[in-house]
Amino acid sequence: MARIRHEGPLIIGGGLAGLSAALEAAPAKALVVTPDLLLNACSSAWAQGGLAAALSPRDSAVLHAKDTEGAGAGLVEPEAARALTERGRETVEWLASLGAPFDRDEAGGFSVSLEAAHSLPRVARVGGDGAGRAILSAVVAAARASSHIEIWEDGRLRGLIQDADGRVRGALIERAGGRVDEVFAPAVVLATGGVGGLYEVTTNPSALRGEGLALAYGAGAEILDPEFVQFHPTAIDVGLDPAPLATEALRGEGARLIDGTGAYLLGEDADADLAPRDIVARAVHAARADGRGAFLDATKAVGEAFPHEFPAVFSACMRAGLDPRVSPIPVAAAAHYHMGGIVADDEGRTTVPGLYAIGECAATGVHGANRLASNSLLEAGAFGRRAGRAAAQE
């Protein structure tokens, strides 16, 4: 076992939250530890919809916060929601400055789309449904080019190191070949993702099984709302795990959920399918459970535009022998996002000194019992940056 002393934040996880923290830690040295190559085994890269932010003249951070609270079933903390939504535009602009190729309108502004439970179009997208990988690719490039960031792409978190007072002083990291290193650092930042891999069918990388959450709990960290797991209502039901995702933006464009007879699952109203995800997921599950089946019909709303408007969904369907231009897509609810997690403030501080948590493994109060669509990438970038700056001061 090697003993390593790192003079700066030790960041566990190489998704959008972890890398945002690493970039903002400068000039402090940041060590990023991830079990695989950056962009692999990372939920951020799999996100389709985009990043929610008040970007249009008729929108505002106040309206965005109101929608966030409405979706969260009464359990969103208003101050946390405002802290998040007030940083929407600056987070999108920061990512764009790193090279994230957000879709633009004719005037050069950010093009925004509508997703469920948003009262206005406010989701900044990339190529229709490729936001996650495109955004993270730009952030990865920036991290690799930063002299203050060191990246281990073969490291797994195996434990937290605490002193006699309970303060976190570092972590046990298993490297390739089974060697375990003791890495001591002034602050440890957990950006370990969610728990989707614990479920039978998930839309997440199956390797994400909540190890960071478990180790934080073992170290004495407070855990909030671990029972709140969001199921995405439109995972493409072709027998795969992880399940391909049919982005919520399809329903924003007018796609409808139907059963095997063609009847609408959530009613005739044009916006019925844009209810919060928990409501839609229950309707999809009920239709499948009673034998009616559940399908997302985008043949009229998208049709021939599928290959260039939603290339990721189109590719996933075609690989499974489905042509979404002419046939409804069979869908099922699948484990998608963990609203619960390690209690943390908007700078990532947990209840254990020296330990920070950001991204999906954290519970910052902004998601309540049901996350508003596309708020996850916003939280990862906005609060990840703040945590990086705070951890660098330890």
Score class of each variant (00 low, 15 high):
268 E>I: 14
233 P>K: 05
317 C>R: 07
315 S>F: 07
208 L>N: 09
343 V>I: 00
312 A>L: 14
222 E>K: 10
338 H>L: 15
239 G>E: 00
332 A>G: 00
237 D>Q: 09
335 A>H: 13
265 L>R: 02
338 H>V: 01
277 R>N: 13
229 V>P: 08
297 D>G: 10
274 L>Q: 12
264 Y>V: 02
202 T>P: 15
293 G>Y: 09
200 E>K: 15
248 E>D: 01
249 A>R: 13
309 E>I: 00
312 A>V: 14
320 A>F: 07
221 A>F: 12
226 P>D: 03
248 E>Q: 13
209 R>W: 01
340 G>L: 08
263 A>P: 05
315 S>Q: 09
339 M>I: 03
325 R>A: 07
285 H>N: 03
285 H>P: 00
336 H>K: 06
250 L>N: 08
297 D>H: 09
237 D>T: 06
324 P>W: 05
330 P>R: 14
327 S>G: 00
222 E>V: 13
207 A>G: 12
278 D>G: 02
281 A>D: 04
283 A>N: 03
321 G>M: 10
219 A>I: 12
310 F>T: 04
324 P>E: 06
220 G>E: 04
301 A>W: 13
238 V>Y: 08
299 T>N: 01
260 G>E: 10
303 G>A: 09
326 V>W: 04
319 R>V: 02
245 L>R: 03
260 G>R: 01
290 D>H: 08
213 L>R: 13
302 V>T: 06
302 V>G: 11
261 T>W: 03
243 A>Y: 04
248 E>G: 15
343 V>Q: 08
324 P>V: 03
230 Q>Y: 11
304 E>V: 15
291 G>W: 07
219 A>G: 13
306 F>A: 01
215 L>W: 10
253 E>H: 12
307 P>H: 10
275 A>I: 02
295 F>A: 00
251 R>G: 07
325 R>S: 10
292 R>K: 11
224 L>D: 12
272 A>N: 07
307 P>M: 09
230 Q>C: 14
265 L>G: 01
294 A>N: 02
276 P>Q: 11
236 I>G: 08
297 D>N: 10
244 P>V: 03
286 A>G: 01
209 R>A: 04
315 S>T: 12
288 R>F: 01
318 M>A: 13
321 G>N: 11
311 P>T: 10
327 S>Y: 05
235 A>T: 09
224 L>H: 10
284 V>K: 03
269 D>F: 08
334 A>H: 15
299 T>M: 01
242 P>T: 04
202 T>V: 14
334 A>E: 05
278 D>R: 08
271 D>V: 06
203 T>Y: 04
270 A>E: 14
275 A>W: 01
325 R>H: 02
259 D>N: 12
